[in-house]
């Protein structure tokens, strides 16, 4: 497999934010049926190594294409937008403020009457925000080649999405702790 092949090319799909998840998973299974190490259990060392690498690359591509957020980010990267997670987090202050509030609410669950119910409310809220950001990303990416302003706009949105996903993970972690302590 050529190193230069994109994930879309590997799956023989056009570069598009819209994709049929069922079709994607069928393609994924077909690819793995050809490349998975189980198909090369008695092959030469080299073939086995190659098959592990291939299968790993197919898994990786599938994970990225499957997730809207990762897919959006990947599409920007294909258009030479680079991400530097540690340094370019210049988000608008209003959004950051909301994030801080949500995070605080998560931290103070124990102070509420019914922590689990409060947590549920926060989780529903986060989900709503994720859907809304996702819709905006979809609108932007529909046009194919983006101009600089659009790129920076989508990049902002992807960053927001990352923030929200982190927050969601945090909430899930909290939920796990709550349930475990019951």
């Amino acid at each position: 497999m050529a190193q230069t092949q994109t994930h879309f090319e590997l799956f023989e799909l056009p570069v598009s934010f819209e994709l049929d998840l069922q079709d994607l998973s069928q393609r994924y299974r077909d690819l793995q049926s050809a490349a998975h190490p189980d198909k090369f259990a008695t092959a030469s060392d080299y073939e086995r190594r190659l098959s592990v690498e291939m299968a790993a690359a197919i898994n990786d591509a599938y994970q990225i294409l499957k997730s809207p957020q990762k897919r959006a980010r990947y599409m920007l990267e294909l258009q030479s937008v680079s991400f530097d997670d540690e340094n370019d987090m210049a988000l608008d202050p209003a959004f950051l403020m909301e994030q801080i509030e949500l995070r605080e609410a998560l931290g103070e669950l124990n102070k509420t009457d019914d922590p689990l119910a409060s947590l549920n409310k926060i989780m529903v809220d986060i989900k709503k925000r994720i859907t809304s950001v996702l819709d905006k990303i979809r609108e932007q990416l529909i046009s194919g080649q983006l101009d600089e302003a659009q790129k920076s706009n989508v990049k902002q949105l992807v960053h927001k999405m990352q923030f929200l996903n982190k927050l969601q993970q945090e909430a899930e972690y909290q939920e796990e702790n709550f349930l475990d302590s019951l």
Binding site: M1, E12, D30, L31, A34, S44, Y46, M54
Partner: peptide, 20 residues
Amino acid sequence: DNAATEFVARRMDGNIKKAL
């Protein structure tokens, strides 16, 4: 193994294309 490296790689590529 070494002599067949390229052949093996092409073959696997071919199989993957065929799968799709």
